Amino acid sequence: MVLVSSLFSCIPQKEIVLLQDHSSDKNYSNPYSEMKSITDQYILQPNDYLFINVSTPDEKISEFFNQRRSNNMGGGQQNQNFFYYQIDDSMNIDFPYVGNINLKGCNVVNGKERVKDALKPFLKEYNLTFKLATNTFTALGEFRSQGVHNMTKEQITIFEAVALAGGVTPYGKQKKLQLLRQLPDGPVTYTVDLTDKNIVNSEYYFIYPNDMLYVRPMRAKQFGIGESFSLGIITGLLALYITLDSLIK
């Protein structure tokens, strides 16, 4: 019984309970740097789609700058009658009449200013709408709902992302969630501990479009132990074996 219990003991609470206070743990030090800002941290990337609309008092001029187009933005869905612009590999968008506008190194706020600067020679009074149209993240590994998920707003917390992905299974390593983020200099991978409450004030508390979350399985999953496994099953079978053995003898 002791041997069985040691091999198939339950998963410790410290491995699955979120937002714990680890300050009293031996040799613990806060691994996260403090969050500096929340909004406008995402830097635009190639293949991003932007929703851009120019509105002027003259309807004909507005129509001239807003050429309706149909783009496939993933998932096999055609988005018609909207003003979507795809960023190419050189970080340019081809804007009607204006030509190429380079958005290298821009977030959404800077990108809007770049488009405004490009329109200055042509328009005096106008209203510009500039938004990121492709707000998705990817969840892989021990999530109940793996795949690409739409973000409910421009920026969501890492716990909102986990919830959108159906939550982590009981056998996911929540202490070692891998966050893959595309930066201007290339992709970077961070390790995030979902059980540590200090993540709330850290730079990893919010995720951004195109982020990928990956949760590795625990060894219990590798040994083929499913979610329905219970120590009671093992002890029940052992008791049945002892009973039958005694009756046979």
Results as ranks from 00 to 15, higher is better:
Leu3Phe: 08
Leu7Ile: 02
Gln13Trp: 02
Gln13Asp: 13
Ile16Arg: 02
Leu18Cys: 01
Leu19Ser: 04
Gln20Thr: 07
Ser23Asp: 08
Asp25Pro: 14
Asp25Asn: 15
Tyr28Cys: 07
Tyr28Asn: 06
Tyr28Glu: 02
Asn30Tyr: 03
Asn30Gln: 04
Tyr32Thr: 00
Tyr32Asp: 02
Ser33Arg: 00
Lys36Asn: 09
Ile38Tyr: 00
Ile38Phe: 00
Gln41Ala: 00
Gln41Met: 01
Gln45Cys: 04
Pro46Glu: 04
Asp48Tyr: 06
Ile52Pro: 05
Asn53Leu: 04
Val54Arg: 10
Val54Gly: 12
Val54His: 11
Thr56Ser: 07
Pro57Gly: 08
Lys60Cys: 04
Ser62Cys: 03
Asn66Asp: 05
Arg68Ile: 05
Arg69Pro: 02
Gln77Ala: 12
Asn79Arg: 15
Asn81Glu: 06
Phe83Asn: 10
Asp89His: 07
Met91Leu: 12
Asp94Met: 14
Pro96Phe: 09
Gly99Val: 08
Gly99Ser: 11
Ile101Leu: 10
Ile101Asn: 07
Lys104Cys: 00
Val109Glu: 13
Lys112His: 09
Val115Leu: 15
Asp117Trp: 08
Ala118Glu: 09
Ala118Ser: 14
Lys124Cys: 02
Lys124Tyr: 06
Tyr126Phe: 15
Leu128Tyr: 06
Lys131His: 06
Leu132Ala: 08
Asn135Gln: 11
Thr138Ile: 15
Thr138Pro: 07
Gly141Ser: 08
Glu142Val: 06
Ser145Gly: 01
Ser145Thr: 12
His149Arg: 11
Asn150Arg: 13
Lys153Asn: 05
Ile156Leu: 02
Ile158Val: 10
Glu160Asp: 14
Ala161His: 07
Ala165Val: 00
Ala165Glu: 02
Gly167Asp: 00
Gly167Pro: 03
Pro170Asn: 14
Pro170Tyr: 14
Lys175Thr: 14
Gln178Met: 15
Gln182Tyr: 13
Gln182Ala: 07
Asp185Phe: 08
Gly186Tyr: 04
Gly186His: 03
Tyr190Ala: 01
Thr195Glu: 03
Lys197Arg: 09
Ser202Asn: 00
Glu203Cys: 00
Tyr205Met: 01
Phe206Asn: 02
Tyr208Glu: 13
Leu213Cys: 09
Val215Cys: 10
Val215Ser: 04
Val215Trp: 03
Ala220Glu: 13
Gln222Ala: 13
Gly224Lys: 14
Glu227Ser: 04
Glu227Trp: 05
Phe229Ile: 12
Ser230Gln: 13
Ile233Trp: 15
Thr235Glu: 15
Ala239Ser: 08
Leu240Asp: 04
Ser246Glu: 03
Ile248Ser: 03
